[in-house]
Design a protein around this nucleic acid. Structure first.
Lengths: 352, 352
DNA sequence: ATAGCTTGTGAACGCGTGTTTATAAAGCGA
DNA sequence: TCGCTTTATAAACACGCGTTCACAAGCTAT
């Protein structure tokens, strides 16, 4: 790329002032009289002068850049790397005058991952990082926090205790499960099952705990045969239901799925077995996947407001960046709400 | 963020050499003997030293950053901002040691848009830009090229003449249409219609031209009543078919849609009117949207290999960046191929 | 042994900007 | 008018690194 001919020295010369005066104008210092400021601004506008960020950074300014690290752990996070997440982070950052540098990370297990993220922080001097797909409590994150970086996390676990220096936004899975079970309860369902996500990763444990609590709240028993092991992919949902159907065990009247993809797979298995959703089984998913509204049957699901979540996360991160002293932990729960579509059926009022 | 205590001065001191020797080691200069290099490298590794990019840039190096500009023009480009595009650009750039700074641009009409892109180039000194959603020939792009920036474009138009300094990858819509019409022809369809995209934007005109050529090639007439005006959204597809059905005109036996979203809408309109796809009408879409495989009926569509397209585009842009002299125009057509699913029906062999 | 050459290395400068410090100008009270 | 304070501006330094240039040490050829 060709070099722009113009720099602050030139601007100063053209405006007939010194370079430091130009700097004071650009950085909105108080001690520059209106007429001088106007004079300088005129030249700046005329020549479309923009300060060189590298020089500014070298002289001690921020890069106004946030690293967005998408951690790739199988197909799950591919799905996460969705329009919503990225677009909202970029738009919100942009509103604060920050730019987003996106980086795809394959896993967070090896030392190489920590190393490459640290290198990006040091080499490119990004002001902060947002991590999608990493758990709050894993060593990877701990390392980065220990290094003193500003870190924002989309967490999937329940918080156990307060971690300092940390900015975390959470899915409100508890509430989501409560609404899902509640909705089914209102439709007179009493035999409710669940296809779990990966119980070692992401929202798996959290959602199951929420399910337990919700069932307890509504006074419903959890039957082990209706707690199906799963994952977060469509395949896992398909396999879970196929295995269940093959075992010949009776089905519940409704099932809650770890997410919408799982629901798609589960429904496919049911349909292949000649069963109908919602007539033979009611299904509720999680996430409100882009597909869900158009799926047949249109999927009832617990929608998480991702846009709002990212808006908050970005705001917190920017704020932390701009108030260097701060280090209080931040936790933000994003509301979820139920979207009723066609995959749940009302049962006749029972005898009770 | 706290400052890293270590810089090249420190490294030099610790290794017992001068700073320029450190620099020579880092930049792989020839005239440094193996033992000196080893000595320096050891200290570098030990302290996890990474050169400060801002300082490197200021001293004349590249930022190794590519700007990814997603132009937002209605819901279309929201759809474009998909996993595939972004992930492939990032991954490919990453393989070349480049990073991606993503920016969302609302339209390219006003001077403000050009201005903000230019500012990013000058201020952040990105090495090049990739533009998604901008047409190759619009003034916006011309401005940027004139400024001397390295620019890569995903184009939607047919090339008319050779434009210098330009890197463009194209959808192969002609071939796609040829395959779509050919497929229908093989299934004995002779009455083939089309729901056009926006004829003023993106691939609209290109696809229609391809459709014309393909129909001509197979010796089929184009009936005006089966050329429906549309857009690129699901709504436009729905409206197009609703209007068509309401007019009471007879339907063709098959229709090609501007893209898969349009097809979803069109199919919805047909189903609402009690018609079946593919029994009453065969439908082919474009793009192989994430939904298409799971849609009911699973949609036959022309798939464009976006990943390959982005791979090529990124490679070209990086190459252009690294060979500063070059300015030959680059054009690359990405192959498309037909994915047969369930939305097309074979008609009985006709009398002919 | 000396001139010429090669190889390795350090000193010094430049990149563009922010910021501190010194200086000049202007205003003010007596 | 003089000394003092305030205000405006310029000069100088720092940021971290690449690179050029000069120089020293080691080598070869005569």
């Amino acid at each position: 790329m060709k070099k722009p001919e113009i720099n602050s020295v030139e601007i100063a010369r053209l405006a007939g002032v010194s370079r430091s005066t130009v700097s004071r104008v650009i950085n909105n210092y108080a001690n520059v009289p209106p007429d001088t400021r106007a004079k300088v601004m005129k030249v700046i506008d005329q020549y479309n002068y923009v300060p060189n960020l590298s020089a500014q950074v070298l002289a001690g300014k921020r890069t106004r850049t946030i690293g967005l690290f998408m951690i790739e752990t199988g197909p799950v996070s591919r799905d996460m790397l969705s329009n919503m997440l990225l677009a909202s982070i970029i738009e919100n950052a942009s509103a604060y005058g920050y730019y987003v540098l996106t980086y795809i990370l394959r896993g967070t297990e090896d030392a190489e991952a920590v190393r490459s993220v640290k290198d990006i922080f040091y080499q490119r001097r990004i002001d902060g990082g947002i991590f999608i797909g990493a758990a709050n409590r894993e060593p990877f994150i701990e390392h980065l926090i220990a290094e003193g970086f500003t870190v924002g996390i989309v967490d999937q676990e329940l918080p156990r205790d307060v971690e300092p220096n940390r900015i975390v936004v959470n899915f409100d899975n508890d509430r989501g499960m409560m609404m899902a079970v509640g909705h089914l309860y209102e439709l007179n369902h009493r035999d409710i099952g669940i296809v779990n996500g990966d119980m070692k990763r992401f929202s798996g444990p959290n959602k199951y705990e929420g399910f337990e609590a919700a069932m307890r709240h509504y006074g419903l028993p959890i039957r082990e045969r209706w707690v199906l092991p799963g994952g977060f992919s469509e395949e896992s949902g398909y396999e879970a239901l196929r295995a269940c159907l093959q075992s010949g065990k009776p089905l519940p009247t409704a099932m809650i799925m770890a997410n919408d993809s799982v629901a798609f797979g589960a429904i496919r298995a049911l349909q292949e077995a000649g069963l109908s959703v919602p007539d033979d089984l009611s299904v509720i998913g999680f996430d409100d996947h882009a597909l869900s509204a158009r799926f047949t049957p249109a999927l009832t699901t617990v929608k998480v407001d991702f846009a709002e979540m990212m808006r908050q996360l970005t705001a917190f991160v920017v704020r932390r960046i701009e108030n260097e002293g701060e280090s209080e932990p931040v936790r933000y729960w994003v509301h979820s709400h139920l979207i009723e579509r066609d995959s749940c059926k009302r049962l006749p009022d029972s005898v009770g």
